[in-house]
Design a protein around this nucleic acid. Structure first.
Lengths: 193, 193
DNA sequence: GCCGGGGCGATACGGTTGTATCGGAACGGG
DNA sequence: CCCGTTCCGATACAACCGTATCGCCCCGGC
């Protein structure tokens, strides 16, 4: 059994390159050559890690999904001392991907969302992430204010966050305005229970 | 001055073909040859109508933007007898592009939104449509319930509608559920003024 | 020590893309 | 009635894409 390299590490590195390219040029701008250059591997290596480009993109989608959901969950366990209501605020803010440091992830997410509208296999990948986030939010809302319809409010929050992300990305809304709108919506929620 | 054809009519026909292709295969799936076939014109005709592909897509974006905003405005003038609150509901429902008959427009809109995240010229086109819709909603909200912060609620409604549209498109939410969520949010609005 | 097999990187290839080019048809003016 | 201008449609072309192929080299086992 000759020559063995860490395949998993390489996949990660390639996916990182894919995400960087999506952030810069969108999904259409991703091609195997640029990915190979960006990941500092040969084109053959990319082909051996992923049998096809579509498989590579699916993997990248899973990667991004895990990253976002993991950060959202992390926000919960990281602030157990705070009130459930403010935890919801923090988690939703995380999901909305506002803030410059997550702008890249937001662009990638939106690119996959649009692609998923015409590609069922990508849609399935996105749905698992959405289901996870929705469940998380629903639990938090229920804890924060049992009087509310937690599922309904979680779904509304998720859509609101997603919509705001898109508006920020095209420059129709600033990140600060979006954060304000989210905060105001949440304030209305707690005030009416 | 020989041979004259209706350029405007041809542009419309081509744009219609572009939109149909975006609906079916996304923005990446649009190429001049397929557009020409779908529009039942020669490839040269497409090139003469639009100097470049990018120009063609920009025009298509403007077309879709005008169509959506026009329908939203139409909803207002078509129902002057109803209460302002229910008019808001109808207009938001229109903006969210729920319902099978507008599924295509929703997909096209989302495709352009994602592309606009990495293409400033497309972003500018989208922003004008968003600004129009936001202004319309703000006026209606103010009329329906002067106690509310109309601008804020209009922005929230717009983002919510957009987010829900995306969720419906990838199958994470049914159109009926999305309509329910919109309705519930509006009910909360009027109830708290 | 060396042989053979299996990953490795470079390159070849068929297909598709956007755009440029070109001969010809069509119409108004003389 | 015919000419030239102008627009039309077909084709050519160069670039790029994803994938397949092919030597080569490195490493474990005999």
């Amino acid at each position: 059994m000759p020559r063995q390299v860490d395949h998993e590490e390489r996949r990660r590195r390639i996916v990182e390159a894919v995400c960087a390219l999506i952030d810069e040029q969108g999904l259409e701008g991703v091609n195997l050559r640029d990915v190979a250059v960006r990941a500092e591997v040969s084109m053959g290596a990319v082909q051996r890690c992923f049998r096809t480009k579509e498989e590579m993109l699916r993997f990248a989608l899973g990667h991004i999904g895990r990253r976002v959901t993991a950060r959202a969950h992390g926000r919960v366990v990281a602030s157990p001392a705070q009130s459930a209501a403010s935890t919801v605020g923090h988690v939703v803010g995380e999901v909305a991907l506002l803030g410059d440091e997550h702008r890249a992830e937001a662009r990638i997410w939106l690119a996959f969302l649009a692609a998923a509208a015409v590609d069922p296999s990508l849609a399935a990948g996105l749905r698992t992430s959405y289901a996870d986030l929705e469940g998380l939010l629903a639990r938090l809302v229920a804890e924060a204010s049992p009087a509310l319809d937690a599922r309904r409010e979680a779904r509304t929050l998720l859509a609101l966050a997603d919509g705001l992300t898109g508006h920020v990305l095209i420059g129709h809304r600033t990140a600060a305005e979006a954060a304000d709108l989210l905060h105001a919506h949440l304030a209305g929620l707690w005030g009416m229970s």
